[in-house]
Computed example of a mutant assay.
Amino acid sequence: MIDIHCHLLNHLDDGAQSLEESIAMAQQAVRNGFTDIIATPHHLKGSYLNDGDTVVEAVAAFNKELTQQQIPLIVHPGQEIALTPNLLQGLKNGGHISLAKSRYVLIEFPSAHIPLYTEELFRELKEQQLIPVIAHPERNQQLMLNKERLHRLLQMGALLQITWNSLMGQFGKRIKHNAEVLLAQNIVHFVATDAHDPKKRSLDIAKAQQVFTKKTTATQRDMIIANSQLLLDNAAVVSGDFKSIKPKRFLFF
C-alpha cells in the first residue's frame, strides 16, 4: 500500500521528534503493509516552514538510513501546504512541492472555515494542470456544513483524502461520522494515515481497516486503495459516482 500523507521526517514539524521515532514509524509502516510513503511535513502552518529543498534533502537522508537498516520502505518528498493566496506562486518557485513530484498537491484548509479565495485558487491550479488534494476534509467544520460548496470544489477537480484514524474515532464521534458520510457519498479518493508518531497518531491501521471494510463496497475499496498508487505514478486517479444520502445522516456542528 501507499501512504500519501505522513509526518515521519524528524525535527521538521509536530511529527517524529527523533531519528529513532522516525525509524519506529517506518518499521510500523512495513508491518502494516506499506511499501511507499510520501512524507508531508507541514509547510506555512504556524511556525513550520519546510521549503521544498529542505524536504527533498531530508527524504534523501532518511531513505539512506532505511537502506542501511534494511527496512523495505521507500519515502518520497511532499508537503502538507497550508492554504494561502500565494500557493501557486510557491509551487512555481519551488518553495512548495507537490506529492512525489506529481501533479497532485496536498492542501490543508483552516480547521473552521473555507477561505473566500479558494475557488479562484483552485481554478488557477487547474490552469497549470495541478490537482488539489484536500487533506482530512472530515475535520473542517465549514466543508462538512456547506456540502454544496464542497461539491463545487469537487466539480472543479479537487480530490478528498480522509484519515484512517478518523474512521477509528480517534478525533471524536463527530469526525468519525463525517468521514463515514463522505464514504457513503462515494466522494473519497484517498485514505491516508496522517501519522505523527508511533503511538498516539500512528501507522497502525488494522482496526481502521475493519471500519473501512464495513463502510464501503469492494469496488469502492479497490478504487480508493488503487488511487494512491495512481497518484504516486502521476497517473489519473479514479472518482466514484456520487451518491446522495438523506440530510438527517449529516452530523451538524
Rank of each mutant, 00 (worst) to 15 (best):
D241R: 15
Q28G: 05
D53P: 01
F34S: 10
E138L: 05
L87D: 15
R149L: 10
H136K: 09
T35L: 04
A135V: 09
H96R: 15
F212W: 02
M156K: 06
P198M: 06
Q185V: 00
V237D: 01
G46F: 02
K199P: 10
D204Q: 08
N227W: 01
I114H: 04
L8A: 10
Q185F: 00
V75C: 06
E80G: 11
L73S: 06
I245L: 04
H189Y: 01
N178I: 01
V188R: 03
S244L: 10
N32K: 03
E108T: 05
L8G: 12
I37F: 04
G157F: 00
N186M: 01
N10V: 02
P110D: 13
T193I: 01
L231A: 07
F171V: 04
N140T: 07
E138N: 02
D233M: 08
T163S: 14
T84R: 14
R201F: 08
P110K: 13
S111G: 13
M168Y: 03
I187V: 07
I162V: 04
K248T: 13
D51V: 00
T216V: 00
Q28T: 00
L150R: 08
I4W: 11
N140F: 09
E108K: 15
L19H: 14
N50I: 03
L106V: 07
Q70K: 12
L125G: 10
V105M: 15
L182F: 00
